[in-house]
Design a protein around this nucleic acid. Structure first.
Length: 613
RNA sequence: GGCCCCGUAGCUCAGUGGAUUAGAGCAGCAGCCUUCUAAGCUGUUGGUCGCAGGUUCGAGUCCUGCCGGGGUCGCCA
């Protein structure tokens, strides 16, 4: 729906904001608070060196405290050498003259509670309409590069339902960061080295023999039994005929492995595409190991760390508690992770001489660093939680403390159907795939519900509930809010003529008499819309996309409630037959709601339907 | 046993990075409503924020210890 919208420039950097719509009213008021602080600096009340970084403006929990509250006086009291309430009165005096502000109160330990003039909220609403798809966009990322690595599932089979949550989370987080001014790279680390892909190759080789007509019988223990490897066998048979059969394993294995990994990655990309997920970079672990012409980056990284004293040959104490059967005390190559906050030093080489997965992963993160990323986010499954400390330690070591890594651990998804757990046989090869779930309930419920919980809390996903058309189902509830807004526009045609083009319609509505939006619930909706930009920023900076999902649910709830009030009290309806002016004003409010829902849903990667029939 | 995550209303969960009197949905209770698209609405009951200390003018939020649940624990990834 926004394809026809013209880009509306963010006006934050311009002077004279009163004539421009206010894009982020909280940021605007924070500026006013800072300005008041400057005035007090000029008059000698505050020292110029006062630390103002902790000053915040936020909506108070209790609406009776006004529209916004700032902690400025409490934070600055120490530097000023005055009591918080005394300083608050001085700041309040400055703020009382502000054209945006209707009322200033000092309360509690020194809060400054602000009530804004209706025009301020009207201005925020105009911005929410006119900015279109850019409403809430910010430059807080300052173009800084950030690498978001997610999914990174082993290329040994299709993605299963356990991968889905991390995939959606990473994608939505990347959307958010891009929207807030970061230069985002979406990356997938392919674990195409190591024992797992050798097992894959042997499994595929069996399917190759099968494709050539051989009866292979049951798949032996330890190999991948899934049918999804049959096409790999067939492709190998088509390409090489019987040519691989006479080769010794060391010769055919790399060939089969290459083919199998390539085909698995193709399948994984297709699965991700079903969720509208696209990575910018697929990074091969094998490419780090030095295949013929390439250099051994893992070895180089270890050597470099050794020169810096972070790697040594030594022994580890055996694990405490749970006994390890075949524990063998031996000298090995160790990364001094304890120097960077880990609990124990970590092995870099296996007893067979190969690198551990961790060693490759260090080199991989070194590659990210060398490619210019100072900001890295890894999205991992819950079973990798024990790995976080060592990776953080490694990133500190390879970047000399100059890079920041945030590992997001995604907790388990419990798959239910009408409240009953979906049974997944432990038998290998029998699991519910990402594709199964998307095919059954559709992309939007999957994406939305995977984000409707904090990443570090486990999540119940009910296949029956997520396609229900009821208030119990947040996906439907939010999407229907958007559809209902458009429905109001369609029904308004009898009363007011509006252009079909969204951009022209937005301009028309932004000229409405917004002062007529004086119902308490209407004002509350306007304030809610005004919060969206700060919610977006907070979600991006804290790497918590679920905040958007919750916000949209609240907004939809407020909107539906207002619609229902109109049902019961005709004078509160959005469309008033004999009063085009108030209809226009209320349609402006609807447009704000519709736009925020559309922008928010697009950040989550969920469609915003125009109607739901 | 070590480490990580979680513990907030009967249930499922938020809680804006320490702030004014802790919130929502569902369930319960009391009224009302039957549609500008199919979500009913309003009011209300219900909480020692797992427990105990500590830091702070101020803690659900930070620190320590304990209890309970889950995950994980060289040479899998």
């Amino acid at each position: 729906m926004h394809a026809s919208l013209t880009r509306h420039r963010n006006c934050v950097s311009r002077r004279g904001a009163m004539t421009q719509p206010i894009t982020n009213i909280f940021a605007t008021v924070l500026e006013r608070v800072h300005a008041a602080g400057h005035t007090l600096i000029a008059s000698g009340v505050l020292p110029a060196a006062a630390d103002r970084s902790r000053v915040v403006v936020e909506p108070p929990r209790d609406p009776s405290h006004g529209d916004m509250a700032t902690n400025a006086a409490m934070v600055l009291a120490k530097d000023a050498g005055r009591k918080p309430r005394e300083l608050a009165e001085l700041l309040a005096g400055e703020l009382r003259g502000d054209p945006l502000v209707a009322k200033v109160d000092v309360a509690g330990p020194g809060f400054i509670n602000l009530t804004l003039k209706p025009e301020a909220w009207a201005s925020a609403l105009v911005s929410a309409i006119l900015s279109g798809p850019d409403y809430g966009r910010s430059h807080i990322g300052s173009g800084q590069s950030v690498n978001v690595e997610y999914v990174s599932a082993n290329p040994t089979g299709p993605l299963h339902v356990g991968h889905t949550r991390g995939a959606v989370f990473g994608d939505a987080l990347a959307n958010l960061l891009a929207f807030t001014g970061f230069a985002v790279t979406r990356e997938y680390y392919i674990n195409d080295a190591g024992a797992q892909v050798e097992v894959l190759a042997r499994s595929a080789f069996l399917r190759y023999r099968e494709a050539l007509g051989e009866d292979i019988g049951p798949i032996p223990e330890g190999l991948y039994p899934g049918d999804y490897l049959k096409p790999v066998g067939e492709a190998l048979a088509a390409e090489f005929a019987r040519g691989l059969l006479d080769m010794p394993e060391p010769q055919w294995l790399p060939i089969v492995r290459g083919k199998a990994v390539a085909m698995m990655m193709e399948a994984i990309r297709a699965d991700l595409a079903a969720l509208n997920i696209k990575h910018d970079v697929f990074f091969s672990e094998r490419s780090l190991l030095g295949d013929g012409t390439q250099s051994d980056q893992v070895g180089q990284t270890i050597a470099e760390l050794r020169r810096e004293g972070h790697v040594y040959e030594g022994r580890l104490p055996p694990p405490k508690g749970a006994p390890v059967e075949d524990w063998e005390d031996r000298e090995q190559t160790l990364f001094r992770a304890t120097e960077f906050g880990d609990d124990i030093d970590r092995p870099l080489k296996k007893s067979d001489g190969g690198y551990t997965y961790f060693a490759s992963d260090i080199a991989y993160h070194k590659s990210k660093f060398d490619r210019g990323f100072r900001d890295m986010i890894d999205v991992w499954g819950a079973d990798h939680g024990g790995y976080v400390k060592r990776m953080n330690a490694a990133v500190k070591a390879i970047s000399d403390g100059k890079a920041a890594l945030d590992v997001k651990i995604i907790q388990l998804v419990r798959l239910l159907r009408a409240g009953e757990p979906v049974k997944m046989s432990k038998r290998a090869g029998d699991f519910i795939t990402l594709r199964d779930v998307v095919d059954e309930v559709g992309r939007d419920p999957v994406r939305f519900m995977m984000l409707y919980r904090k990443n570090d809390a486990s999540l119940d996903f009910d296949l029956a509930k997520v396609i229900e058309q009821s208030r119990d189902n947040p996906v439907f509830y939010v999407q229907y809010g958007h559809a209902r807004g458009h429905s109001v526009f369609r029904n308004a045609r009898e009363v007011v003529q509006l252009p079909d083009d969204w951009s022209q319609r937005a301009r028309r509505l932004s000229d409405a008499e917004l002062a007529r939006l004086d119902d308490a619930a209407e004002l509350a909706l306007m304030r809610k819309l005004a919060q969206f930009p700060r919610v977006v920023e907070a979600a991006a900076l804290s790497h918590e996309p679920h905040r958007i999902a919750f916000f949209l649910y609240e907004l939809a709830s407020d909107f539906h409630a207002q619609w229902t009030r109109g049902n019961n009290s005709p004078h509160l309806r959005f469309i008033i037959q004999d009063d085009p002016n108030i209809t226009l004003a209320r349609l402006a409010l609807v447009a704000g709601v519709v736009n925020v829902l559309a922008v928010g849903l697009s950040l989550l990667g969920v469609d915003a339907p125009l109607e739901m029939r």
